[in-house]
Protein backbone atom coordinates (compact mmCIF):
# COMPACT_ATOMS: atom_id res chain seq x y z
CA UNK A 1 0.00 0.00 0.00
CA UNK A 2 1.12 3.51 -0.76
CA UNK A 3 2.16 5.44 2.32
CA UNK A 4 0.33 8.66 3.04
CA UNK A 5 2.66 11.53 2.22
CA UNK A 6 2.01 14.34 4.65
CA UNK A 7 4.28 16.70 2.78
CA UNK A 8 2.44 16.46 -0.52
CA UNK A 9 1.70 19.68 -2.38
CA UNK A 10 -2.00 19.64 -1.70
CA UNK A 11 -1.52 19.36 2.03
CA UNK A 12 0.98 22.22 2.12
CA UNK A 13 -1.26 24.48 0.03
CA UNK A 14 -4.18 23.60 2.28
CA UNK A 15 -2.27 24.44 5.46
CA UNK A 16 -1.14 27.75 3.97
CA UNK A 17 -4.73 28.62 3.03
CA UNK A 18 -5.92 27.62 6.49
CA UNK A 19 -3.37 29.94 8.13
CA UNK A 20 -4.50 32.86 5.94
CA UNK A 21 -8.16 32.23 6.85
CA UNK A 22 -7.19 31.99 10.50
CA UNK A 23 -5.27 35.28 10.34
CA UNK A 24 -8.34 37.07 9.02
CA UNK A 25 -10.72 35.66 11.63
CA UNK A 26 -8.25 36.16 14.48
CA UNK A 27 -7.69 39.77 13.42
CA UNK A 28 -11.45 40.29 13.27
CA UNK A 29 -11.87 38.79 16.72
CA UNK A 30 -8.97 40.61 18.28
CA UNK A 31 -9.97 44.03 17.02
CA UNK A 32 -13.66 43.29 17.65
CA UNK A 33 -14.42 44.03 14.01
CA UNK A 34 -16.52 40.87 13.99
CA UNK A 35 -19.80 41.14 15.89
CA UNK A 36 -19.90 39.22 19.18
CA UNK A 37 -22.50 36.80 17.89
CA UNK A 38 -20.29 35.97 14.92
CA UNK A 39 -17.32 35.35 17.20
CA UNK A 40 -19.34 32.84 19.21
CA UNK A 41 -20.62 31.19 16.07
CA UNK A 42 -17.08 30.90 14.72
CA UNK A 43 -16.29 28.51 17.59
CA UNK A 44 -19.53 26.65 17.02
CA UNK A 45 -18.61 26.36 13.35
CA UNK A 46 -15.36 24.66 14.38
CA UNK A 47 -16.96 21.75 16.14
CA UNK A 48 -19.74 21.52 13.57
CA UNK A 49 -17.15 21.19 10.80
CA UNK A 50 -15.43 18.40 12.74
CA UNK A 51 -18.77 16.65 13.28
CA UNK A 52 -19.77 17.00 9.64
CA UNK A 53 -16.42 15.66 8.42
CA UNK A 54 -16.50 12.70 10.76
CA UNK A 55 -20.03 11.78 9.70
CA UNK A 56 -19.15 12.40 6.08
CA UNK A 57 -16.56 9.65 6.32
CA UNK A 58 -19.25 7.21 7.46
CA UNK A 59 -22.22 8.31 5.34
CA UNK A 60 -20.57 9.86 2.30
CA UNK A 61 -17.69 7.44 1.80
CA UNK A 62 -18.63 4.18 3.50
CA UNK A 63 -22.27 4.61 2.51
CA UNK A 64 -23.74 3.53 5.84
CA UNK A 65 -26.11 5.77 7.72
CA UNK A 66 -25.22 6.63 11.30
CA UNK A 67 -28.13 8.17 13.18
CA UNK A 68 -26.33 8.01 16.49
CA UNK A 69 -23.54 10.45 15.83
CA UNK A 70 -24.77 12.57 18.72
CA UNK A 71 -24.00 9.54 20.91
CA UNK A 72 -20.29 9.63 20.00
CA UNK A 73 -20.39 13.40 20.38
CA UNK A 74 -21.82 12.90 23.90
CA UNK A 75 -19.31 10.20 24.86
CA UNK A 76 -16.44 12.50 23.95
CA UNK A 77 -17.96 15.56 25.59
CA UNK A 78 -18.67 13.84 28.90
CA UNK A 79 -15.44 11.86 29.24
CA UNK A 80 -13.23 14.77 28.16
CA UNK A 81 -15.02 17.29 30.35
CA UNK A 82 -15.05 15.05 33.42
CA UNK A 83 -11.28 14.68 33.01
CA UNK A 84 -10.91 18.40 32.59
CA UNK A 85 -12.92 19.22 35.72
CA UNK A 86 -10.91 16.83 37.89
CA UNK A 87 -7.45 17.77 36.68
CA UNK A 88 -5.03 20.45 37.84
CA UNK A 89 -2.81 20.72 34.79
CA UNK A 90 -2.38 24.05 32.98
CA UNK A 91 -5.58 24.72 31.08
CA UNK A 92 -4.07 24.51 27.59
CA UNK A 93 -2.50 21.13 28.23
CA UNK A 94 -5.66 20.02 29.99
CA UNK A 95 -7.78 20.93 26.98
CA UNK A 96 -5.55 19.05 24.56
CA UNK A 97 -5.45 15.99 26.84
CA UNK A 98 -9.23 16.20 27.34
CA UNK A 99 -9.69 16.25 23.57
CA UNK A 100 -7.52 13.17 23.20
CA UNK A 101 -9.31 11.37 26.03
CA UNK A 102 -12.75 12.35 24.72
CA UNK A 103 -11.78 11.24 21.23
CA UNK A 104 -10.39 7.95 22.50
CA UNK A 105 -13.45 7.13 24.61
CA UNK A 106 -15.75 7.94 21.69
CA UNK A 107 -13.52 5.86 19.41
CA UNK A 108 -13.85 2.91 21.81
CA UNK A 109 -17.62 3.40 21.61
CA UNK A 110 -17.42 3.47 17.82
CA UNK A 111 -15.25 0.35 17.84
CA UNK A 112 -17.60 -1.55 20.12
CA UNK A 113 -20.76 -0.62 18.28
CA UNK A 114 -19.32 -1.30 14.82
CA UNK A 115 -17.74 -4.60 15.77
CA UNK A 116 -20.99 -5.84 17.30
CA UNK A 117 -23.09 -5.06 14.23
CA UNK A 118 -20.84 -6.35 11.49
CA UNK A 119 -23.57 -8.59 10.10
CA UNK A 120 -25.91 -5.67 9.60
CA UNK A 121 -26.11 -3.07 6.89
CA UNK A 122 -28.44 -0.46 5.52
CA UNK A 123 -31.67 0.18 7.40
CA UNK A 124 -30.85 -2.19 10.25
CA UNK A 125 -27.48 -0.60 10.84
CA UNK A 126 -29.07 2.85 10.83
CA UNK A 127 -31.63 1.76 13.42
CA UNK A 128 -28.93 0.25 15.62
CA UNK A 129 -26.88 3.45 15.54
CA UNK A 130 -30.03 5.40 16.42
CA UNK A 131 -30.70 3.00 19.29
CA UNK A 132 -27.09 3.33 20.38
CA UNK A 133 -27.35 7.13 20.51
CA UNK A 134 -30.50 6.89 22.62
CA UNK A 135 -28.94 4.30 24.94
CA UNK A 136 -25.94 6.56 25.55
CA UNK A 137 -28.27 9.43 26.39
CA UNK A 138 -30.41 7.25 28.66
CA UNK A 139 -27.40 6.04 30.59
CA UNK A 140 -25.92 9.50 30.92
CA UNK A 141 -29.21 10.41 32.60
CA UNK A 142 -28.85 7.74 35.29
CA UNK A 143 -25.10 7.66 35.99
CA UNK A 144 -24.18 9.94 38.92
CA UNK A 145 -20.77 11.06 37.50
CA UNK A 146 -22.39 12.83 34.58
CA UNK A 147 -24.75 14.94 36.66
CA UNK A 148 -27.76 13.11 35.21
CA UNK A 149 -30.57 15.13 33.68
CA UNK A 150 -29.42 18.22 35.62
CA UNK A 151 -26.30 18.43 33.46
CA UNK A 152 -22.58 18.72 34.06
CA UNK A 153 -21.41 22.18 35.05
CA UNK A 154 -18.15 23.83 36.03
CA UNK A 155 -16.23 22.83 32.91
CA UNK A 156 -13.16 25.08 32.77
CA UNK A 157 -12.92 27.64 30.01
CA UNK A 158 -9.82 28.28 27.94
CA UNK A 159 -10.09 31.99 28.62
CA UNK A 160 -10.74 34.42 25.82
CA UNK A 161 -12.88 33.61 22.82
CA UNK A 162 -9.87 34.04 20.56
CA UNK A 163 -7.96 31.41 22.51
CA UNK A 164 -10.85 28.95 22.40
CA UNK A 165 -11.23 29.59 18.71
CA UNK A 166 -7.50 29.11 18.07
CA UNK A 167 -7.39 25.75 19.81
CA UNK A 168 -10.60 24.59 18.13
CA UNK A 169 -9.32 25.77 14.76
CA UNK A 170 -6.14 23.73 15.14
CA UNK A 171 -8.27 20.65 15.76
CA UNK A 172 -10.38 21.46 12.70
CA UNK A 173 -7.24 21.65 10.55
CA UNK A 174 -5.95 18.36 11.96
CA UNK A 175 -9.32 16.71 11.31
CA UNK A 176 -9.43 17.96 7.74
CA UNK A 177 -5.86 16.78 7.11
CA UNK A 178 -6.41 13.33 8.56
CA UNK A 179 -9.78 12.68 6.91
CA UNK A 180 -8.72 14.11 3.56
CA UNK A 181 -5.62 11.96 3.56
CA UNK A 182 -7.55 8.86 4.53
CA UNK A 183 -10.01 9.47 1.71
CA UNK A 184 -7.27 10.15 -0.83
CA UNK A 185 -5.27 7.06 0.13
CA UNK A 186 -5.77 3.48 -0.94
CA UNK A 187 -7.80 3.03 2.26
CA UNK A 188 -10.17 5.70 0.99
CA UNK A 189 -10.57 3.94 -2.34
CA UNK A 190 -11.26 0.68 -0.54
CA UNK A 191 -13.93 2.43 1.54
CA UNK A 192 -15.66 3.97 -1.47
CA UNK A 193 -15.54 0.64 -3.27
CA UNK A 194 -17.47 -0.89 -0.37
CA UNK A 195 -20.05 1.86 -0.77
CA UNK A 196 -20.38 1.34 -4.50
CA UNK A 197 -20.52 -2.44 -4.51
CA UNK A 198 -19.82 -4.39 -1.37
CA UNK A 199 -19.84 -7.81 -3.03
CA UNK A 200 -17.43 -6.75 -5.76
CA UNK A 201 -15.18 -5.12 -3.17
CA UNK A 202 -15.11 -8.30 -1.13
CA UNK A 203 -14.28 -10.38 -4.20
CA UNK A 204 -11.10 -8.39 -4.84
CA UNK A 205 -9.92 -9.02 -1.31
CA UNK A 206 -11.12 -5.93 0.56
CA UNK A 207 -11.94 -6.81 4.14
CA UNK A 208 -15.33 -5.13 4.49
CA UNK A 209 -15.73 -5.81 8.18
CA UNK A 210 -12.32 -4.45 9.08
CA UNK A 211 -12.92 -1.27 7.08
CA UNK A 212 -16.34 -0.78 8.63
CA UNK A 213 -14.79 -0.95 12.10
CA UNK A 214 -11.98 1.38 11.07
CA UNK A 215 -14.31 3.98 9.58
CA UNK A 216 -16.68 3.97 12.54
CA UNK A 217 -13.79 4.19 15.00
CA UNK A 218 -12.13 7.11 13.20
CA UNK A 219 -15.47 8.89 12.73
CA UNK A 220 -16.36 8.44 16.40
CA UNK A 221 -12.91 9.67 17.46
CA UNK A 222 -13.37 13.02 15.75
CA UNK A 223 -16.98 13.34 16.93
CA UNK A 224 -15.61 12.89 20.46
CA UNK A 225 -13.10 15.68 19.96
CA UNK A 226 -15.93 17.91 18.77
CA UNK A 227 -17.76 17.10 21.99
CA UNK A 228 -14.80 18.21 24.10
CA UNK A 229 -14.64 21.51 22.21
CA UNK A 230 -18.37 22.02 22.82
CA UNK A 231 -17.96 21.36 26.55
CA UNK A 232 -15.05 23.77 27.00
CA UNK A 233 -16.83 26.43 25.06
CA UNK A 234 -20.28 26.43 26.68
CA UNK A 235 -18.88 25.20 30.06
CA UNK A 236 -22.05 23.25 30.78
CA UNK A 237 -23.39 20.15 29.07
CA UNK A 238 -26.62 18.23 29.54
CA UNK A 239 -28.17 15.18 27.83
CA UNK A 240 -30.42 17.48 25.80
CA UNK A 241 -27.33 18.76 23.94
CA UNK A 242 -26.98 15.35 22.35
CA UNK A 243 -30.47 14.29 21.31
CA UNK A 244 -31.70 12.83 18.05
CA UNK A 245 -32.12 16.30 16.51
CA UNK A 246 -28.38 16.83 16.77
CA UNK A 247 -27.72 13.64 14.83
CA UNK A 248 -30.15 14.85 12.16
CA UNK A 249 -28.53 18.28 12.03
CA UNK A 250 -25.13 16.70 11.37
CA UNK A 251 -26.72 14.49 8.71
CA UNK A 252 -28.22 17.55 7.05
CA UNK A 253 -24.74 19.10 6.85
CA UNK A 254 -23.36 16.02 5.13
CA UNK A 255 -26.29 15.65 2.74
CA UNK A 256 -26.41 19.35 1.85
CA UNK A 257 -22.67 19.43 1.25
CA UNK A 258 -23.01 16.53 -1.14
CA UNK A 259 -22.31 13.01 0.03
CA UNK A 260 -18.71 12.07 -0.54
CA UNK A 261 -17.58 15.67 -0.86
CA UNK A 262 -15.47 16.92 2.04
CA UNK A 263 -15.27 20.55 0.95
CA UNK A 264 -19.05 20.54 0.54
CA UNK A 265 -19.49 19.19 4.06
CA UNK A 266 -17.25 21.91 5.46
CA UNK A 267 -19.14 24.67 3.65
CA UNK A 268 -22.52 23.20 4.63
CA UNK A 269 -21.45 22.93 8.28
CA UNK A 270 -20.42 26.59 8.34
CA UNK A 271 -23.61 27.70 6.55
CA UNK A 272 -25.82 25.70 8.91
CA UNK A 273 -23.99 27.14 11.92
CA UNK A 274 -24.75 30.65 10.74
CA UNK A 275 -28.27 29.79 9.56
CA UNK A 276 -29.99 30.88 12.80
CA UNK A 277 -28.24 34.25 12.44
CA UNK A 278 -29.20 34.55 8.79
CA UNK A 279 -32.80 33.49 9.46
CA UNK A 280 -33.23 35.67 12.50
CA UNK A 281 -36.97 35.92 13.16
CA UNK A 282 -37.67 32.78 11.15
CA UNK A 283 -35.95 30.47 13.56
CA UNK A 284 -39.02 28.32 14.13
CA UNK A 285 -38.87 27.31 10.47
CA UNK A 286 -35.25 26.17 10.70
CA UNK A 287 -35.99 22.50 11.38
CA UNK A 288 -38.66 22.53 8.70
CA UNK A 289 -36.06 23.80 6.26
CA UNK A 290 -33.73 20.96 7.29
CA UNK A 291 -36.45 18.41 6.59
CA UNK A 292 -37.25 19.90 3.21
CA UNK A 293 -33.54 20.12 2.40
CA UNK A 294 -33.06 16.41 3.11
CA UNK A 295 -36.01 15.42 0.91
CA UNK A 296 -35.19 17.86 -1.86
CA UNK A 297 -31.51 16.88 -2.05
CA UNK A 298 -32.41 13.22 -2.38
CA UNK A 299 -35.07 13.89 -5.00
CA UNK A 300 -32.78 16.20 -6.96
CA UNK A 301 -30.08 13.58 -7.23
CA UNK A 302 -32.31 10.53 -7.76
CA UNK A 303 -35.69 11.36 -9.25
CA UNK A 304 -35.68 10.43 -12.96
CA UNK A 305 -37.88 13.41 -13.78
CA UNK A 306 -35.63 15.95 -12.08
CA UNK A 307 -32.48 14.37 -13.53
CA UNK A 308 -34.07 14.57 -16.97
CA UNK A 309 -34.94 18.21 -16.36
CA UNK A 310 -31.39 18.95 -15.28
CA UNK A 311 -29.90 17.28 -18.36
CA UNK A 312 -32.24 19.23 -20.63
CA UNK A 313 -31.52 22.48 -18.83
CA UNK A 314 -27.80 21.86 -19.21
CA UNK A 315 -28.19 21.14 -22.92
CA UNK A 316 -30.24 24.30 -23.37
CA UNK A 317 -27.67 26.33 -21.49
CA UNK A 318 -24.91 24.85 -23.62
CA UNK A 319 -26.88 25.64 -26.77
CA UNK A 320 -27.49 29.20 -25.65
CA UNK A 321 -23.84 29.62 -24.79
CA UNK A 322 -22.83 28.33 -28.21
CA UNK A 323 -25.25 30.69 -29.92
CA UNK A 324 -23.94 33.70 -28.06
CA UNK A 325 -20.39 32.61 -28.62
CA UNK A 326 -20.71 32.15 -32.40
CA UNK A 327 -22.56 35.42 -32.76
CA UNK A 328 -19.66 37.18 -31.09
CA UNK A 329 -17.25 35.77 -33.59
CA UNK A 330 -19.17 36.98 -36.59
Amino acid sequence: MKRINLKSHRNLIFVAAAIVVYAFIAYGMNSNLLPRATQTLAIKACYNVILALSLSLIVGFLGELSLGHAGFFALGAYSGCIFSINSNLPIELRFVLAALIGGTVAAIGGFLISSSILRLQGDYLAIVTLAFGEIIRSFIKIIPVTGGTAGLGGIPSLGSKLKTFTFSYVFVILTILVIRNIVASSHGRAITSIRDNAIAAESIGINIKLYKIKVFTVGAFFAGIAGVILGHYINFIEPANFNYNVSIEILVMVVLGGMGNLLGSIIAAVVITFLPEILRGFDQYRLLIYALALIFMMLASNSPRIINFRVKAREKAAGLYKKLFTRKEE
Binding site: V59, G63, E64, L65, L67, G122, D123, A126, I248, L251, V255, M259, Q284, Y285, L287, L288, Y290, A291, L292, A293, L294, I295, M297, M298, L299, S301, N302, S303, P304, R305, I306
Partner: peptide
Protein backbone atom coordinates in the same frame (compact mmCIF):
# COMPACT_ATOMS: atom_id res chain seq x y z
CA UNK B 1 -41.27 11.56 -1.88
CA UNK B 2 -40.86 7.80 -2.24
CA UNK B 3 -42.13 6.99 -5.71
CA UNK B 4 -39.48 9.00 -7.58
CA UNK B 5 -36.82 7.08 -5.65
CA UNK B 6 -37.89 3.55 -6.68
CA UNK B 7 -34.54 2.88 -8.33
CA UNK B 8 -32.36 4.97 -6.03
CA UNK B 9 -29.85 3.54 -3.54
CA UNK B 10 -31.29 2.39 -0.18
CA UNK B 11 -29.29 5.13 1.54
CA UNK B 12 -31.07 7.87 -0.43
CA UNK B 13 -34.47 6.33 0.29
CA UNK B 14 -33.68 6.10 3.98
CA UNK B 15 -32.53 9.72 4.15
CA UNK B 16 -35.71 10.82 2.34
CA UNK B 17 -37.84 8.86 4.82
CA UNK B 18 -36.03 10.53 7.71
CA UNK B 19 -36.67 13.86 6.01
CA UNK B 20 -40.40 13.11 5.73
CA UNK B 21 -40.56 12.05 9.38
CA UNK B 22 -38.79 15.23 10.43
CA UNK B 23 -41.06 17.31 8.19
CA UNK B 24 -44.26 15.91 9.74
CA UNK B 25 -42.88 16.41 13.25
CA UNK B 26 -41.97 20.02 12.63
CA UNK B 27 -45.20 20.81 10.82
CA UNK B 28 -47.09 19.55 13.86
CA UNK B 29 -44.77 21.61 16.03
CA UNK B 30 -45.51 24.76 14.02
Amino acid sequence: AYKPLRHATPLSVLITAIGVSYLLQNLALL
